[in-house]
Amino acid sequence: MIELKNVSKLYSVKNRPGVSAVHDVSLNVANGEFVIITGRSGSGKTTLLNLIAGLARPTAGQVLLDDVEVWKLPDDQQALMRNHKIGFIFQFPSLIPSLNVLENVLLPTILGDKQDKDSAHDRAVKLLEEVGLADKLDSLPRQLSAGQQQRVVIARALINQPELLLADEPTSNLDEQTEAEVMTLLKEMFSKKGITVLLVTHTDELIHYGTRAIRMASGAIVNPPVQVQVTT
């Protein structure tokens, strides 16, 4: 599903030498994998996720999604690809503050070219039921706890029935108990919906939720691969 061939990303800084965020990374992720990418802060995990999603342009190398080179697509098609195929969970609060829970979940449906509004609405309500927020449809993000907000983000990420879910430190702002709840939810969604998941985390404690783990340091993948003991 995902293929990275010798991908590098150099961020240019004014009047200074560029900062290499990702360096010569090659990676294959097959359909149905739950890959955890770990590494310290600044190791290039988020940049790698952004490169896979087409949110950052690689300085060198190729990023292929379903055998299509992402950065060879025009902006319109890149955007459609993200809208149809990829669900995002961000590290930072990413809900639109002025939209209520239901509207936030429906947001990706108005950005794409899918026109079936009734079924999108039904799907959004069902997803919010699945993440345990059926009674919060009209609430605004500020009326929810951090854990509840992240559940809304998960529902939003799944609204267009993506093939790939990219999660960037989805539990970094949550307490231990909420972190476990969110990870369990993600794992459930992975099992039930059969989607491919790439999850970035700075801690090794979440590795056991995945089917494979990759460690990054200084913008490169560290070998040998991390051993994963899969939870059930």
Partner: peptide, 16 residues
Amino acid sequence: RREIGVLRALGARRWT
């Protein structure tokens, strides 16, 4: 800015 980045990630075209 960040919100616009999120919209782009969710599938908004530049033009959108």
